[in-house]
Amino acid sequence: MDFDFQWLLIGLPVAFAFGWLASRFDLRQVRRDNRDAPKAYFKGLNLLLNEQQDKAIDAFIEAVQNDPDTTELHFALGNLFRRRGEFERAVRVHEHLLARGDLKSTERDRAQHALAQDFMKAGLFDRAEAAYRALEGTPFAGEARLALLSLYERSRDWHNASAVASQLEQAGSGSFAARIAHYACELAQEADERGRHDEAAAALQRAREAAPQAARPLVQAGQRLARAGQHAQALEAWDELRLRQPAAFLLVADAYADSARAAGRAAQAVAMLRSLFDKLPSLDLLRALGRLDAAPPLLPLLQQQPSLSAAQLWLAQPADTRGADGDAGLAAVRDAVGRAAKPLQRYRCAACGFEAQHYFWQCPGCLSWDSYPPQRVEEQ
């Protein structure tokens, strides 16, 4: 049977026409699907910007249903759930992402980090710890370590906190020496409470090695020695503190005076405290000198630092001991009271807490009307 080439000439254009129509149909369908998904996504974004989170969640759920393979929609939905405190739903979204076999490694790390944040916000610290540990070796490792550091501090797990802080420092995330010293001091305090005094001494030594200029190890070391009756050694630790951190020495001024009396060094302590008082006048040093029966007059300190505490102490003195300085002392007391009262002589907005010296019908901070009570702060 001879082949009729006329059918070939007719069939080729028909086949081409059907192929073209099929491709146009598929292309329109793809365009329609792609147009519908972004529409729901941008609708949710607009609602979110307008602080309508409930409607935004509904829009994102609709977008996810239309395009379940889009990871960005899942991340947006999971973050919304977390912000609203719906941690269980956020966990489900991010665990669903991690269960997908076609997820890229970068997106998987991102989902793991989001899941760890869900657990952390929900207070599930054991699961958060495991989730953050799984991020080691990923681009989120630095953030995970910082989160673990916060988690260990919150749970008072000082051993792990110290280890993570050391890792962060070695990774070039900054200096964590002061924190490491605090962790060691916390461990020393716990060891002392359990009667493990050798462990406490070793922990304080590690704290001093980690941060030689830190005040807390010296404060704590002197306190331990004083409790043990080793007052001379306590004075040595606190003398080193005074040379390194004079302001922090005020925290142990009273204890220094007591240890000096117990060690038979009251005269040397008075000379030192008076010298420090001339450079750094304070009520703490004045009280410490008072324990050694060598307190200087209070009036010059009250005039130099008109604080309520100094004013109260001056008023507590017997009136017959004030002598000719009575009028000057009363003037200094009035000055101290006036300074302390000034911040309280303001009006405070009940809506946002904005304070002002003048009464406003409309708050300059939050623009609320009639939000200022007519009473000043000290009268409320």
Score class of each variant (00 low, 15 high):
H74N: 10
R82A: 01
D69C: 01
R82L: 00
L80N: 11
D67H: 10
L97A: 05
V93D: 02
T70M: 12
G78Y: 04
T71A: 11
R83N: 12
F75K: 04
E88N: 06
H96R: 13
V91I: 15
N79G: 14
L77A: 00
H96I: 02
V91D: 04
A63C: 13
V64R: 13
H94T: 01
R100F: 06
E88H: 00
N79P: 10
T106M: 11
T70Q: 14
R100D: 10
T71Q: 09
P68I: 06
A99S: 15
S105K: 15
A99C: 10
E95P: 02
R89S: 08
N79V: 13
D102N: 13
F87N: 08
R84S: 07
T106V: 14
Q65G: 07
A99K: 15
E62M: 05
K104E: 14
R89H: 08
A90E: 07
H96A: 15
L77P: 00
L77H: 03
A63T: 08
L97E: 04
L80R: 09
F81R: 00
Q65R: 13
T106C: 04
E62S: 09
G101W: 11
G78S: 06
L97G: 06
R100I: 15
G101Q: 15
L97K: 05
A63Y: 12
H94F: 12
R92F: 07
F75S: 06
E72Q: 10
Q65A: 13
V91S: 06
K104N: 15
R84C: 03
R83H: 10
P68R: 06
H96C: 03
R92Y: 07
D67L: 08
R92W: 07
T71H: 11
E86S: 03
D69S: 11
S105A: 15
K104C: 10
R89I: 01
